[in-house]
Design a protein around this nucleic acid. Sequence first.
RNA 1: GCCCUGGUAGUGUAGCGGCCUAUCAUGAAGCCCUGUCGAGGCUUCGACUCGGGUUCAAAUCCCGACCAGGGCGCCA
Length: 606
Amino acid sequence: MLRTHHCGQLTKGDLGKRVTLAGWVRFYRDHGGVLFYDIADSHGSTQAVFDPEATTSGDLDRLEGVLNSIGREYVVAVTGTVRDRVEGTTDPRNPTGEIEVLIEDAEVLNRSKPIPFEVAEQKNSMLPGEDLRMRYRYLDLRRKEMNANLRFRSRLISSARRFLESEGFMEVETPMLTRSSREGARDFLVPSRTMPGHFYALPQSPQLYKQMLMVGGVERYFQIARCFRDEDSRADRQPEFTQLDLEMSFVDMDDILSMVERMYAFVWKELFNEPLPIPFPRIELKDALSKYGTDAPDVRFGLEMEEVTDLVRAAPYEIFQKVLSKGGMVTCINLKASMLREQDADGAVGRKQVDRLIEWAKGQGMGGLTWMRMTPEGLSSNIVKYFPVEVRKAIAARTAAEPGDLLLFLAGPREGTLKAGGQLRLKLARDLGLLEGKGHQFVWVVSCPLFQRDPATGGLTSFHHPFVRPVGDVIPEGKECATAMGRSYDLVLDGSEIGSGSLRNHDPAMQRRVFSILGMDEATMQREFDFFLEALEYGAPPHGGIGMGIDRLCAMLLGCESIRDVIAFPKNKKFQSLVDGAPTKVEEAKLSELQLLSLAEDDDGA
RNA sequence: GCCCUGGUAGUGUAGCGGCCUAUCAUGAAGCCCUGUCGAGGCUUCGACUCGGGUUCAAAUCCCGACCAGGGCGCCA
């Protein structure tokens, strides 16, 4: 080892020891002869000091020469004696702040060019633009925060792995060069050299492989699986991502949900040393949509929507009547007076803020937003005269309105209105600080349909994917098949979907039936899924599982703005890897070898 | 494919028609300083993304491109 201790290690218990530290020079200070260096590694930082009056090294001139050549982020090894700090010069913020190393020898292990942005923690955030951080990702990773993020991710995976192994799960790797399918997202294709004109696809998930592992008798499988989907990025989505993928045989839905819950409880204990309440609440999809306006609800604050369509039917309020006549709906959020922070409480949310909300609602594609305020005398607002007293009372009762509460109504086509209401909830929660101090909350979203209508084609598509086993193992005949429900479940954390799974079809006849409802004829089934349908023919056990997004999970638990902060080498919005410049053009010869011809516009002149 | 936001020294920012020979901080280079710890003091260096246009005058307004991010679509 080039060092005897790491930089977060030394304390008063080490006084008098002769030690060698190695690390990066984060700061240095020259007091006209007395030189201070903060030597940092991934464990911490330790102050090393050169004191010409105290140092007894043989060759002071050489040592001073070395020390004076050192710049920021130089990699150095210093050897010296651990000593107590001078009275009043300890640094209580640093675990090693009570001691320092008196430098007796120093060596520059490597130099550094002036760094393009700050690696050291600064008081005022000077975090550079993301493109620069990506380009010099190795420097970005040297930052304490990024180092901690990667460490957290590693511990989370390690903890989950230990739990699953203790439960008898087997970690199995599945191929990265896989069969392309027309289902799902766009594939990343890889040309085959040995079979010109043929292509592999990078896996969108290990779905079919893990099901075949169940047929293969693995019974309990998991994998930290890299997945690839060639669809546009978001803050919580990039084209290559990591799933904690698992699958179990001879289980029903509750077995899988319970296993996942116990896994997170175990992880929580190890990572946060806190109990995680299990089981997680379950909410039916239709309730999630009507109360939270999304299939991934954040249930940590109130502000649930209450539909009042039936009540306002009796009110001659033109805007609502127009919406109702078109088959639309009216929903209401009660902004409780008790939710307002003290500084806002006296005037509740004023007219000006309501006006701003109305403008915001228009930006969400709504016609506007209607409001009423609850007073001791009942509901009041500029339009309350259009609402008969009985209607007002019924609305107040359904929304549990108390004096001071503000009722916000959205009216319009069902889907868009619920969606806007869901956005309104989140906006209010943000604006009013309702999430401050709130912990994390998992919730299962269950009772999803098997199919949904594709608005473009009018045909049926899978709600989740085609391998979901229907509730009761029954799909109604004819047009009624669209009403079939699936034995599937989504895991949601704080309003983000972090996992999705189901029981699978192990009966090949049922799997064929699903394919055929999705519009696949026998020939297509044969072409795309013959191998899989055949596998099911050979004694496939009942099975099911789940895949959970590790990037998203880590980002949420760490409070990161984007998953890029928990991925060592992420892609930018155009899928470029700025640190190494991928993707690149390749030589003509490489294409020829693969029997490929590029049709991209030739910009070689540039 | 579409919508929104933003591009000012190495980095982070201020300025948003004339007070701009562009602010401040940090950095880099140099000097001073024997107990600091984001050390301090002094000196120096260093920028308006690009191309059109409007105007007597553009970092500032308009149009277009490019770059980055956020979102819609997409993500079985």
